[in-house]
């Protein structure tokens, strides 16, 4: 009997490679899209942070796959909280945002991502 195992293994590996999760960078946007892309990120992060109002820099995730989020008013002088961390991933053609502390992932369809090779 001819085993189908090798074919199954190949299909499995192909499937894995197409869904591989890799740290990602936001593709540098065209200048007229900077605000749009930034707002996409702000909206996505806000939704993962209970709808809290949030701002990020124009170049958020352009040079790093990681982003740190903390209170905008910075401090009450002596703070004990820890900040939140977000990481950008690429899987296939999808751009995924992870809230590191909770493990929650969110697909940002309109965002353009490339694998982080740094």
């Amino acid at each position: 009997m001819k085993s189908i195992f090798p074919y199954g293994l190949i299909l499995f590996l192909l499937a894995c490679s197409s869904t591989e999760l890799a740290p990602s960078l936001r593709r540098p946007a065209l200048s007229n899209n900077i605000n749009v892309e930034r707002m996409l990120l702000e909206t996505a992060i806000s939704e993962m942070m209970n709808g809290t109002d949030i701002i990020v820099a124009d170049d958020a995730f352009v040079n790093s796959s990681d982003l740190i989020i903390e209170r905008r008013l910075q401090s009450s002088g002596r703070d004990f909280d820890m900040p939140d961390h977000f990481r950008l991933w690429k899987r296939g053609e999808s751009c995924l945002l992870e809230h590191v502390e909770s493990g929650e992932m969110k697909n940002i369809e309109e965002l353009n991502c490339v694998k982080n090779t740094n």
Partner: peptide, 21 residues
Amino acid sequence: KFHFTFDTEEWEQLSQSGVST
């Protein structure tokens, strides 16, 4: 000298670390 309040919605606003408008 440090007795004050904030509107909660304003106090809870977040930003990328070090980012302000």
